[in-house]
Structures are given as structure tokens and as C-alpha cells.
């Protein structure tokens, strides 16, 4: 009978071997540039550009609600131009990246997992391998790179539109002038607010696309399997966003 120490050392050894293999496979996939390079731009368009409308839709309503909420909080206690500060800080540092990330986790994560899952169960991934392609290079690397590049772009647009929606709400519904809103916006502004938000967005992009790819390529069992793994990809993507959000706050703030 194997002792508990020997069993756990065997498990550790297997985990290290598995990790090593995964690391080696990743290096090989990334090194195969001529396979993944032609697919990065089309994926950036599909995963990023096509996600802009839904991200902006969310950003507009986030800006409106933040503006109204800050008036409700500040009235009688803090000068109303602080509305600009609250809208700016919140949209740039937290709600812009996180809400955009969560929306894209649904849209992009599900899209990737369902597509790759269907390819897996219809043997298209096997077909790629028999044609001497590395599926990680052909399918995973371009999607992850597209996520890392495009999540910050979409988030930047959402930040701008969110702040603009807050400003339009402030001058129309809160009796605030543009000058007062901008004064509040600039009051606590630091350049870090923007790069902090964009850095988070890039990490969310990597997490969401990786979750979609891992779940998609790990699909087994036909349509039911595709549905199950697509759901898992979205849930995993959302969880990763929340964990990463806390991690970056802990490390960088």
C-alpha cells in the first residue's frame, strides 16, 4: 500500500509534469508565428470591433446612473461638482473595465467556447492536426492575442462614452454646468486612473479568451457538451475577472 507521503509526492510530480508539458506546448504554439499571425486581425475584428455596440450601450447607462446616484449621495453634503470626480474615477478605474469585461465574458467567452466546442465534437480540431497544424497555434493564440489587444480598446471607448453620458446627464438633469463637471473630473484625476483600467482590461481579455479556448477545446459529448462547456467558459471568465480585479487593486493601489 502506498503511504500518504508517497501518494502526495506522486501527485505533485504529476502536476509538475503536466504543468511543464502545458508550458512547453504554449511555447511551441506561440513560436509557430506563421500559423497564428494571419488570424490575429480577423479575430480582433470579430471579438473586439463587433463587441463595441454592446459595450457602449452598457457604458451609456452606467454613466447616466452614476451621475444621478452621485447627486443623490452628495446633495447637501458635498459640492455638486464632485459628481464629475465620482463619475470619472468610477468609470475609468472600476466600472468601465469590469462591466465591459463581464459583458465581453458573456459575448466573447461564449462565442469562442461554442465555436471551438463545435469544432471539437465535429472532429474539425482532429482534422487540423492531421493537416499538420498545431490547434493551439491556429485557434488559441490568435484569439488570446485579440482579447489582450482589443479588450483595452473597447474598454477605452466605453470609458469615454461612460464619462460623456455622465456629463450629458449632469448638465441636463442635475443643473450642473460643463465647467463644474470638468472641474470635478479634473480634481482627483491621475494618469494612473486610465492605465490602471486598461491594464485590468488587458488581463480580463487574456482570462476570458483563455477560458473560452480551454473549455471549447475540452468539449466532449456532442451538443450537450458544447452547451455545458460554453456555460462553464462564461462562468469561469466572470469569476476570473472578479479575482483579477481584486488582485490588481491589491497590487497597484
Amino acid at each position: 500500500m502506498t503511504s500518504p507521503t508517497a501518494a502526495s509526492s506522486h501527485r505533485l510530480e504529476r502536476s509538475i509534469t503536466r504543468l511543464g508539458r502545458a508550458g512547453l506546448a504554449t511555447v511551441q504554439a506561440v513560436a509557430d508565428v506563421r500559423t497564428w499571425a494571419p488570424h490575429v486581425i480577423p479575430q480582433m475584428r470579430r471579438l473586439g470591433v463587433d463587441s463595441v455596440p454592446i459595450a457602449l450601450f452598457i457604458a451609456i447607462f452606467t454613466g447616466i446612473v452614476l451621475s444621478l446616484l452621485s447627486k443623490y449621495i452628495f446633495t447637501g453634503a458635498v459640492p455638486l461638482y464632485f459628481v464629475g470626480a465620482l463619475v470619472g474615477k468610477t468609470v475609468m478605474m472600476e466600472l468601465g473595465p469590469v462591466l465591459t469585461g463581464l459583458v465581453l465574458a458573456g459575448r466573447v467567452g461564449a462565442n469562442i467556447a461554442a465555436e471551438l466546442g463545435t469544432m471539437r465534437v465535429t472532429e474539425q480540431v482532429d482534422a487540423l492536426e492531421t493537416l499538420a497544424y498545431n490547434p493551439r497555434s491556429y485557434l488559441v493564440v490568435p484569439r488570446v492575442l485579440a482579447g489582450v489587444f482589443m479588450f483595452p480598446v473597447v474598454t477605452a471607448l466605453a470609458m469615454g462614452v461612460g464619462v460623456a453620458a455622465g456629463w450629458v446627464t449632469a448638465i441636463n438633469l442635475l443643473d450642473l454646468s460643463t465647467l463644474e463637471f470638468v472641474k470635478g473630473l479634473r480634481l482627483f484625476y491621475r494618469f494612473k486612473d486610465i492605465w490602471f483600467g486598461l491594464l485590468k482590461a488587458a488581463s480580463f481579455g487574456a482570462a476570458v479568451t483563455l477560458a473560452g479556448c480551454v473549455q471549447g477545446l475540452g468539449t466532449r459529448g456532442g451538443a450537450e457538451g458544447v452547451g455545458r462547456n460554453t456555460t462553464r467558459a462564461v462562468v469561469l471568465g466572470c469569476e476570473a475577472i472578479l479575482v483579477l480585479d481584486a488582485f490588481w487593486a491589491l497590487v497597484l493601489l
Partner: peptide
């Protein structure tokens, strides 16, 4: 090795049960 496998696969054509064409 991965290179050896790629070389082998370049000599073997595979016709899948449901064709497995890329949609």
C-alpha cells in the same frame, strides 16, 4: 517529436466520418 509527427502526418491523408470540413 512534434516535428516528427508533423512529418508523418504530411504523408497520411485522413477522411473523417462526417468529413470534418471547416465550416
Amino acid at each position: 517529436s512534434p516535428e516528427g509527427l508533423a512529418e508523418l502526418r504530411s504523408q497520411v491523408g485522413y477522411v473523417f466520418q462526417f468529413a470534418a470540413l471547416f465550416d
